[in-house]
Design a protein around this nucleic acid. Structure first.
Lengths: 219, 219
DNA sequence: CAAAAAATGTTGCTTAGGCAACATACCTCC
DNA sequence: GGAGGTATGTTGCCTAAGCAACATTTTTTG
């Protein structure tokens, strides 16, 4: 698993920890490495999750079955992202999503208890680890918060504007490039792609914004 | 502030910590107590927040100004609830909401750094504190997740069903009592109260659910 | 218990936006 | 360059659900 070491050290969980420290920690964290073939399941809907994972290679996605059976994708997971951090931290709760490898993938898992409780050796990096874990969840929560913020708006226009303003605050400019194409943006805002396009046109016409591809200017 | 000690010890932050320990900790946590009159602001939209608070008395609400200026209420905060936990933990971010006392209120704030870094005395309760903080955020994140789950549904019926099923899982029964009245439920699901009532009737008629007041049965 | 107030339900009207179908622009690779 | 593919934009039609106004039920309180 050495080859994925870089990915691991880029993760939020191990930020601000030196490579040599990480290597030491991997042992006391009871790291367990797992390989998945395309379509393999890392977490099943309904599981109780007591490990937090980090994707090392490949991509994964979290998905759930809608009431009427169709599958919807909740998030995309990239190398060095967390897997199941929310679940692992909130414990009691059963997973509302499944996590599936979208291609061949490798991941490493750590029992959450060891991160929280610290190992018997009490290496002082555990404090940093814990801090990183906290930052990781806070970040997840913020992502959820931001989407909520868009979703609670009643009109398509307000949803778009809220989204653009959030990105704008984030990038500290009224000229922004967004990370989503129209389809993804529509999905994120929970509107029809065509309705999104329609409203974007109107907003441009009304002099609220300008845009080309994924570059936007807010007036 | 002694009189609010009970409230404090009921908070998630201090769960599993004995009263005597809490008293000791309050000192090294650099607790700062604040009083607010009705309408007083605990956090202003745009603030950077570096303290996590706990409401001791009264009620507060987090609110934000909509794009077109009208104020919307995001959450209600009750005694022993956290104030600004997400913000304090994710740090860099400026607050997207203001927090306002809806009546005369008391609160206590702790610099988040001290909780995370531990105080100089290294009292061993800090580990528990940190664990509690983690649980607190994870819980917040879950709340956000659950609402998202409802909001991303396209029809009123699906939103209702998703909400009811989540509560049902939570209470471990198909017969549930929900904590929201119709208006709040409508607000939570981001639909019109009348549309909610209409759809509930239809769902009853269609034999999907039964209900009376805030008691629901899912078939 | 009666009256007032609050919560919930009902219903006609209207419209934003979902849906489908097609148009245009943009990319890429032979 | 052109052929195929993908991303984006446009438009007519139609329905779900917003809105307003009123009805009924439940709760409060004097």
């Amino acid at each position: 698993m050495e080859i994925f070491f870089d990915t691991l050290s880029k993760s939020v969980l191990f930020s601000n920890i030196s490579e040599s420290e990480i290597k030491k920690m991997l042992v006391c964290l009871k790291a367990s490495y797992r390989k998945y073939s395309k379509g393999g399941m890392m977490i099943w809907e309904g599981d109780k999750v007591s490990e937090v994972g980090i994707l090392l290679y490949g991509t994964a996605r979290s998905l759930k079955n809608d009431i009427d059976g169709k599958t919807i994708i909740v998030t995309m997971i990239e190398p060095s992202n967390f897997i199941g951090i929310l679940l692992a931290c909130s414990q009691k709760r059963k997973s509302p999503v499944s996590v599936q490898a979208s291609q061949e993938a490798y991941a490493v898992f750590f029992p959450i208890e060891i991160i929280i409780e610290g190992c018997s050796k009490r290496c002082n990096c555990h404090k940093i680890l814990m801090k990183n874990l906290l930052a990781g969840i806070a970040e997840k929560a913020m992502v959820l918060h931001d989407r909520n913020d868009c979703l609670i708006k009643s009109s398509v226009r307000e949803k778009i504007m809220t989204y653009l303003l959030t990105v704008s605050k984030d990038q500290g400019s009224k000229k922004i490039s967004i990370p989503l194409d129209r389809s993804s943006m529509a999905e994120y805002l929970n509107v029809e792609r065509s309705s999104l396009s329609r409203e974007l046109s109107k907003m441009k016409r009304d002099g609220l914004i300008n845009y080309k591809k994924n570059y936007f200017v807010i007036f």
